[in-house]
Amino acid sequence: MKKTMMTLILCSFFATPAMAAFYDVREAIEKLHAAKVDALITVTEDTKLSEDEMKAQDKAFAALEAAVTTAVKESGTEELQEEIIKATVVLLKKDPTQYAGEVVLPLYEKNKKSFLSNLKKLPASDAKLVEDAVKSAARQIKSGNG
């Protein structure tokens, strides 16, 4: 009985970080879904955003940023990365400032090859949109915007 208890305690001790990481990833995905990026308004040249529209936009970018932080921190986050890229495509299409490129930059910098191979699952135009935005954000940090 004692042995079984010890084994259980040891197992739970080692499993806790893995379980925490799993829950972090699930939470990040759920937050991204809750942000409803598809429902955001598409901003054009003449769009004047209302308070509510700004709040919805802020929520989406905050969820994307949190998801990227989790994906950078944890390993084995393929599903989360796919969700991040999907949300990024939508945000880039709806926001002419292309801020989403800057938000996902840490994920691109963590593993460029993996990030670019994930883009291959997207339609070519969407993949190019994300790649351009991310590379532009990286270039701005390195060499500026002049």
Binding site: E45, D46, T47, K48, L49, M54, Q57, D58, F61, A62, E65, D95, P96, T97, Y99, E102
Partner: peptide, 20 residues
């Protein structure tokens, strides 16, 4: 509006980046 590399009816201070 405001023009730089693109035109916007909103200033940079109203952009998602500035708000964030």
């Amino acid at each position: 509006g405001f023009v730089s590399d693109f035109y916007s009816g909103n200033s940079f201070l109203s952009s998602p980046k500035a708000r964030r």
